[in-house]
Simulated assay, not measured.
Amino acid sequence: MVFLTISNLIRVRGPDEFWRKRRIFRLAAHFVGRRRNCYSVAVRNVHRALVYATKARKLKKQDMKDLWNTRISAACEQHNITAFTLKEGLDRSNIMLDRKSLSDLASWEPRTFECLAAIAKQKLQLDGFIDTVDKKYPTGVNLNLKDVMLEAWLKEKK
Rank of each mutant, 00 (worst) to 15 (best):
H79V: 04
D104L: 03
L124C: 02
Q78T: 04
M96I: 07
R13K: 12
S73M: 13
I6T: 14
R57S: 00
R34V: 05
T139H: 10
V51L: 02
M1H: 14
W19E: 06
K157H: 14
W153V: 08
L124V: 04
R34A: 08
L27H: 05
E151T: 06
T5R: 06
N80W: 14
V46N: 09
E114P: 00
I72A: 05
R34C: 07
D127S: 03
A152Q: 15
R44V: 08
F84K: 12
F3P: 13
N8S: 14
A28L: 02
L4V: 02
R111A: 05
S7P: 06
G33V: 05
V41R: 12
Q122D: 09
N8Q: 14
T85V: 02
S93P: 09
M96Q: 15
A53Y: 11
R13V: 05
I119P: 11
A120I: 01
A56I: 00
E114Q: 12
K155A: 15
L124R: 08
A49D: 09
R11A: 06
T132Y: 07
Y137Q: 14
H79Y: 15
C38E: 07
F113P: 14
K135A: 04
F129T: 01
E17V: 13
E17W: 15
L145H: 02
Q78R: 10
N69T: 09
E77K: 15
E88L: 03
Q78F: 03
W153I: 04
F84E: 11
G140Q: 01
